[in-house]
Write a protein that binds this DNA or RNA. Sequence first.
DNA 1: GGACGGCCATGACATATGTCCCGAGCAAAG
DNA 2: CTTTGCTCGGGACATATGTCATGGCCGTCC
Lengths: 201, 201
Amino acid sequence: MIKLLLAEDQGMMRGALALLLGLEADFEIVAQVGDGDEIVPRALETRPDVALLDIELPGRSGLDAAAALREALPACQVLILTTFGRPGYLRRAMEAGAAGFLVKDGPVEELAVAVRRVLAGERVIDPGLAAAALSAGPNPLTQRERDVLAAAVDGATVADIADRVHLSPATVRNYLSSAIGKTRTRNRMEAVRAARQNGWL
Amino acid sequence: MIKLLLAEDQGMMRGALALLLGLEADFEIVAQVGDGDEIVPRALETRPDVALLDIELPGRSGLDAAAALREALPACQVLILTTFGRPGYLRRAMEAGAAGFLVKDGPVEELAVAVRRVLAGERVIDPGLAAAALSAGPNPLTQRERDVLAAAVDGATVADIADRVHLSPATVRNYLSSAIGKTRTRNRMEAVRAARQNGWL
DNA sequence: GGACGGCCATGACATATGTCCCGAGCAAAG
DNA sequence: CTTTGCTCGGGACATATGTCATGGCCGTCC
């Protein structure tokens, strides 16, 4: 019996996937969670063989949880399942020790196949995505640049960002400027979009 | 036999829902589409009893398609199924003649129940959402204000927006200013976020 | 030890943005 | 017919934003 943990915030998606995977004779869903902070505790409790993790989750991100999970329960393989095939996501997933990376496009049948492959020791990654991740190169942004960009997502003003990150407004503008330069964009919002697009956020 | 059309862009979600609904003995999925422009043609071809439509779709929006579908095939009931419970979406869905409005949170079981209720002539709407839609009031933005805001989503500069909407930069700034005023926000991006939040986009 | 790079901050400058005036055309509602 | 509101544009102004140069503080790597 293959024991699965399923982390996905959208209730309907979670339920549908659970039902679907439950149809496989040798699969058993031992835990379903909708919050990133519950992943590790529930995994320690239920000891799944494979964890299917979404990235965008309330609480801790699926990528963070993946790293923590590999640490806490090395026997459990991690399969990232996400809406967005961002190159940086794939890179970070690999660094976090994930064994597979699937996007939510593509047919559902892929899912059970991927679980079995991962358990067989294979790595499951979309080939086109792997190429994109390599060609995109590593994240050029420094920690503070990421922080500042992340604080700018909702159209916050420089003063707001400075307040959130606990920096001088002047410094914030400098970081924004350098982030804009590195992303080859023209203003703050374009930089945010570019960074998100590449999974650098 | 209840014939269903399913419009949803995310392949895995679409497949999972199709499989799931197919498990119901009296349900039959007669069409699955991932593009808004295919909804009406495929519906005319397959004559479903109920159409399950996502809102955010490539091509024509699910809300637009809903209106066109009610026009072209009045016998077919429309059930909107969306990620975001924005008040303005619900309002527009009702105006488009939808019989139900579900969010993708909530359990999957709701779905089959909702389909049956809609066919029985009932309206299916989340009660909390209905209250929010009423309290939020109608869309205060004019057509041009919406156009300009929509063209500003990705951090475009005034010149870019003017170019996209075929207006003078001065006019664009005026519309942005009035949109910012109506949304009680402080800048373009906050206005965009507020408008999207309410489904005014 | 020195070079390098990230971090933090300031000042000065050009440009972009948001606001408030103004005026004109036009269509729908009263 | 007059009023109202949406549309489209311009000008002037204060403020926000992006850029650049400069400096100091701290680590790491050679």
